[in-house]
Amino acid sequence: MSPLECDTSPGSGLLKDFSLEITGKDLRDLQQAVAGIPRGTRVNITFLANEDASVRVHAAEVIKNLGFRPVPHISARRLASREELGSYLAALAAVGATEDVVVVAGDPAQPAGPFEDSLAVLTGGDLTAYGVRSVDIAGYPEGHPKIPDEVLWQAIRDKTEALRAQELSYAIATQFGFDAGAVVRWIERLRGEGIDAPVRIGVPGPAGVQRLLRYAKRFGVSSSASVVQKYGFSLTGLLGTAGPTRFIADLQSAIDPAVHGEILVHFYTFGGVRATAEWVRTARAE
């Protein structure tokens, strides 16, 4: 089926196996949204600087008990020692939550310990020792404000090689963005690099426009007038809300599995788990 022949409704294709991202503070919201989220859904747990590891471990346990698949983040530069990483993985293993993880470098400019970047964690041998079987690594379809594009591409190549060498399953989870065209072009280059792993496209869940713009600024995501207009909201309508309907429809119309491979959607909920779950439930029913 060619891209132009694809069903472009938001409920088709891309939403068949979505994932969510929450913080340890979002558990109550997640519990209240359980009925609207398919069992087995992947739920990522962010690695916040102001949260103790026990908060993330507790979140992973709750997520698993709710019938979902916990996917804890590991932030390389926030780890003060290899012992801290081992302790964290051991605690996650104790609640059955190490099979799937996300490994990122993290925001600090200087590492708190021995891990300079995510590659250092991936090659250290700690992950497989604690039962990790699948790893998500980061991708930046619209670039990174502090890292040159070619450095980002080399990082993906290096991490892919390291994961393949350990025979670990892996996928690439992207930063959220507003420009579907940029995402598709990035996927095409990724496939051109010979990287055929599944890609989880980061998408903001429905939220207030001001909140979306704040997060965009925080994470260096382009939010120019032309880009956000494509997404479906105007900078003059700051008091309104915006959802991902147009963005996902644009992706759906452009994605051809024969060319782009396995493409999934990963929702950044930004504290709105119930709103995101309801949006997905409605879109999948259309």
Results as ranks from 00 to 15, higher is better:
G24P: 10
L190S: 06
T128N: 10
D7T: 05
E150F: 08
P10I: 07
R82G: 14
T269P: 15
G261K: 11
A109R: 05
R28N: 13
R39Y: 07
T245W: 05
D136E: 02
W153Q: 12
A138N: 02
Y88S: 09
H260S: 13
L30D: 04
M1C: 06
T8D: 04
A129Y: 01
T23G: 15
F270R: 07
P244T: 03
A216T: 05
W279K: 14
Q175S: 10
A162S: 06
N44M: 10
G194M: 07
G271A: 15
L20V: 02
V121C: 10
I172F: 01
E61D: 13
G40M: 08
F18H: 09
L127P: 01
L212V: 03
Y130H: 13
G36L: 14
A60Y: 03
R39E: 11
I263C: 11
A155L: 10
A109K: 06
T241F: 10
A76S: 03
G13I: 01
I156N: 09
G272W: 09
T98L: 15
V221M: 14
P3G: 08
A216D: 04
T269V: 15
G67P: 00
P72V: 11
P148Q: 09
R284T: 02
D52Q: 11
L122K: 04
Y215T: 02
V104I: 09
A91M: 05
V259Y: 08
G243T: 10
I187K: 08
G232L: 12
G205Q: 12
V183G: 03
R214A: 12
D179I: 01
F18G: 03
L119W: 06
E167R: 12
A120S: 09
T276Y: 05
D179M: 07
G272A: 15
F270C: 13
T46E: 04
Y140L: 12
T123C: 14
R157P: 01
E84H: 05
